[in-house]
Write a protein that binds this DNA or RNA. Structure first.
Length: 491
RNA sequence: CGGGGCGUAGCGUAGCCCGGUUAUCGCGCCUGGUUUGGGACCAGGAGGUCGCAAGUUCGAAUCUUGCCGCCCCGACCA
């Protein structure tokens, strides 16, 4: 590596090389801020996606797919929604190109101007609710629990790889319910699924909470979120679940007849997580040697590297490894045998560490004679000789242990970086010196929140769920407050 | 869009201020050989629209102007 890496400074660019090509097709301004996801990075996304998809289906959701292009007028139907999204949309204005009449090249055909411009979806609430209008007539049609895996485009002024690319992959769930209670329950259920996924599979602890009005999704009545802490002390919103009330039902005239034969507007939710989760993973677990993949979603769980002197010992090792491979595969463990002659063992060790493969097995003649394998774990970099008898089970146990260890380590870091502040000076000093989450009293007004953001760049990440009530004084204004909220500088 | 930095081989770079032989070095790549328990070594070799365009000049990587792109900071944000 040419550059020294430090997790504190969040300079993760070197690590991305295995996952993506930065900047997409970098020479074309039109795709500025996009990324090409390489096979290794995409395999990670697929593992995350498959697990989430399974969890969605277990809770009664089904997948569907809605169009990429949305008529401009749809965006203007929900007032708050258009306010939040209109400014950052890519717009399709024409449907044909033609040869440039004045010379070489291709130009937009002015005769092919669309009567109504089309918007590349920044999110799909509008087109989905326009469809739901036709799908919902009776309480018997509810609840409607649909999820979509898709790409969306948001023309952000400034992009940041994984955390805020112009185009990103995500899933968006859009549900319709007969009652408010049921919709709120759904909103909370999906937040729970996100929290469970991020904690149990990504090994990243999160705080569940609700957003303040300032940070709320455009068009939502309540935005729930999970907030994670990165190693540089900045917070990151890892997923959101919105209770949309009847806003979209009213905007798109989605009504149903209840059991009393009365027309009512339906109640809505939407929820999503994106490829930003890949960024979360990188920044929560990476170290100066590269990525660290949690075993449960690692694109590759085990790599085996042969150590041999001269061609004659290679077949012996190949044969031994073959048996180990099939044992591991039988336990559902993904494993790769890198017996390529292109690079030496030391190179391979470093390479797979950079990729974050949780377990590496080194196998040489010496090991075979001793009936052991050298097993190295990525999270702690510990190396041990482990008996070949029952090796696959030992590896399976080790993968579990790594998963747990990674989570515990992240929890410890998060807890160490969660502090209370009761005075303004203390609050500012903690932010500057330590970062992390700061639990403090707030007077509940948007004006105070804005002022604090202006002065310190810290925002209220969330009002934690099941928050303890506690009388106190606002950290900034001194006005009375009934509970603490979580502040942090965030991505 | 405002402020700052930058663009030279696949990657990282020297040269630019002060214009002048064949554009520097390292990694990587190719060939041959020796190697292989933590990023091997020797020898030979290939690879360049110096971001793009125009201008100044006998002569431009170097000076001027415009444009494009990238990175960082701000506004925006999953």
């Amino acid at each position: 590596m040419s550059k020294e890496l430090t997790t504190r400074e969040a300079d993760y660019s070197q690590w991305y090389n295995d996952l993506v090509i930065k900047g997409g097709l970098a020479d074309y301004s039109a795709v500025r801020g996009c990324m090409v996801i390489k096979p290794y990075g995409y395999a990670l996304w697929e593992n995350m996606r498959d697990q989430l998809d399974k969890m969605f289906k277990e809770t009664g959701h089904v997948n569907a797919y809605f169009p990429l292009l949305i008529p401009k007028s749809f965006l203007s139907k929900e007032a708050a929604h258009v306010e939040g999204f209109a400014k950052e949309c890519a717009v399709v204005t024409h449907y044909r190109l033609k040869n440039d009449p004045d010379g070489k090249g291709i130009v937009v055909d002015p005769d092919a101007k669309l009567e109504e411009e089309l918007i590349i979806r920044p999110t799909s609430e509008t087109i989905i609710w326009n469809t739901y209008k036709d799908w919902i007539q009776s309480y018997r049609d509810l609840p409607l629990l649909i999820n979509q895996w898709a790409n969306v485009v948001r023309w952000e002024m400034r992009t940041r790889l994984f955390l805020r690319t112009a185009e990103f992959l995500w899933q968006e769930g859009h549900t319709a319910h007969a009652t408010k209670e049921e919709a709120v329950e759904e909103t909370e259920r999906m937040l729970d699924i996100y929290a469970t996924f991020v904690e149990e599979y990504m090994a990243v602890p999160v705080i569940r909470g609700v957003k303040t009005a300032n940070e709320r999704f455009a068009g939502a009545e309540e935005t729930y979120c999970i907030e994670a802490l990165m190693q540089d002390g900045k917070a990151l919103q890892a997923g959101t679940s919105h209770f949309l009330g009847q806003n979209f039902a009213k905007a798109f005239e989605v009504q149903f007849l209840n059991k009393e034969n009365k027309l009512e507007h339906v109640w809505a939710t939407s929820w999503g997580v994106s490829t930003r989760l890949i960024g979360t993973l990188i920044m929560a677990h990476g170290d100066d040697q590269g990525l660290i993949m949690p075993p449960k979603i690692a694109p590759l769980q085990v790599v085996i590297v042969p150590i041999y002197k001269g061609e004659e010992s290679k077949p012996v090792i190949d044969e031994k490894v073959k048996g180990i491979m099939s044992e591991l595969k039988a336990l559902g463990i993904s494993v790769k045998y890198d017996n390529s002659d292109n690079s030496r063992p030391g190179w391979k060790f470093a390479e797979y560490e950079l990729k974050g493969v949780p377990v590496r097995i080194a196998m040489g003649l010496r090991d075979i004679e001793n009936n052991v394998a050298e097993v190295a774990r990525r999270d702690t970099k510990e190396k041990k000789a482990i008996s070949l008898d029952g090796l696959s089970q030992s590896i399976a146990n080790l993968l579990d242990e790594i998963q747990i260890n990674m989570f515990n380590k992240a929890v410890q870091f998060r807890n160490e970086n969660m502090r209370e502040a009761n005075e303004w000076d203390e609050f500012v000093k903690l932010l500057d010196d330590k970062g992390g989450f700061i639990s403090a009293h707030w007077d509940g007004t948007a004006a105070t929140e804005d002022k604090i953001k202006e002065l310190t760049k810290a925002t209220i990440r969330c009002i934690p769920m099941n928050n303890e009530m506690e009388d106190g004084k606002c950290i900034f204004t001194g006005a009375p407050s009934t509970q603490r909220v979580l502040f942090a500088r965030a991505y």
